[in-house]
């Protein structure tokens, strides 16, 4: 699997996700600087976590208009899978590749801790190694992770099976205090209608190796390798 990781000024999880991809696939991804205009032929594009352009104006606003993003958007429209983690999710909504927006956390605080997620949609390139309603532990670290979309869009996401993950507690009970940021319908990650684009706020790459204290994020990378190799 040939993956490309797009690197912006202010990305800080680009190398973490590169390690996870290399461990799962045996091949190091290409790191592509945001100012490039040509994207190498890729089986997967990853928009990593971080704070591209210091979150100026809105999280992801500047990065979404970086030169490389034209090629990323074209590739996505042509069917290349795209994974956006944290800032990558914000970038995906700012480009319009995914609907909705990531707003300031409801409690106004930066949230940095492990959360539990319920796998809502295991039928995708990204989630094939998980099972329906599986509960996984993955860290979040964000200030703007409060997913919002209008009622019509949320109904479409729900109806089309485009909600990938929801925040839950360790027992799998969704919502309430387990929702760290106020996201509508406790949504932690969403797919495009073809389920070839995934954006999520939690960081699977941060718990994808036993040395990091957990491996619940690893199946996402294994799924991608299995489906795209």
């Amino acid at each position: 699997m040939k993956a490309s990781v797009i690197v912006f000024p202010g990305s800080n999880c680009d190398r973490d996700v590169a390690v996870s991809l290399a461990a799962a696939s045996g091949t190091s991804p290409r790191m592509v600087w945001h100012a490039e205009t040509d994207l190498p032929k890729s089986d997967l594009i990853v928009l990593p976590g971080g704070f591209s352009f210091g979150d100026y104006l809105r999280a992801g606003a500047m990065g979404a208009r970086s030169p490389i993003m034209r090629a990323v958007i074209d590739a996505a429209h042509a069917g290349t899978p795209v994974l956006g983690i944290c800032n990558g999710f914000q970038l995906l909504t700012e480009t319009g590749l995914l609907p909705g927006a990531l707003m300031r956390n409801a409690a106004l605080k930066f949230v940095c801790r492990d959360v539990f997620l319920r796998v809502t949609q295991p039928d995708s390139l990204f989630t094939a190694r998980y099972v329906q309603d599986q509960v996984i532990r993955v860290p979040v670290a964000h200030h703007d992770g409060n997913y919002f979309a209008d009622a019509e869009t949320v109904a479409r996401l729900e109806g089309d099976g485009c909600v990938a993950f929801r925040y839950c507690d360790g027992a799998g009970s969704v919502g309430g205090a387990a929702n760290p940021n106020g996201s509508i319908n406790d949504i932690a990650g969403v797919f495009d209608p073809a389920r070839r684009i995934l954006g999520l706020m939690p960081h699977p790459e941060r718990l994808a190796d036993p040395a990091l204290g957990g491996t619940d994020g690893q199946p996402m990378f294994a799924s991608l390798v299995e489906c795209l190799s």
Partner: peptide, 9 residues
């Protein structure tokens, strides 16, 4: 419409 505002919100 292209940058300064996010017309979704």
């Amino acid at each position: 419409s292209q940058l300064l505002a996010n017309t979704v919100i």
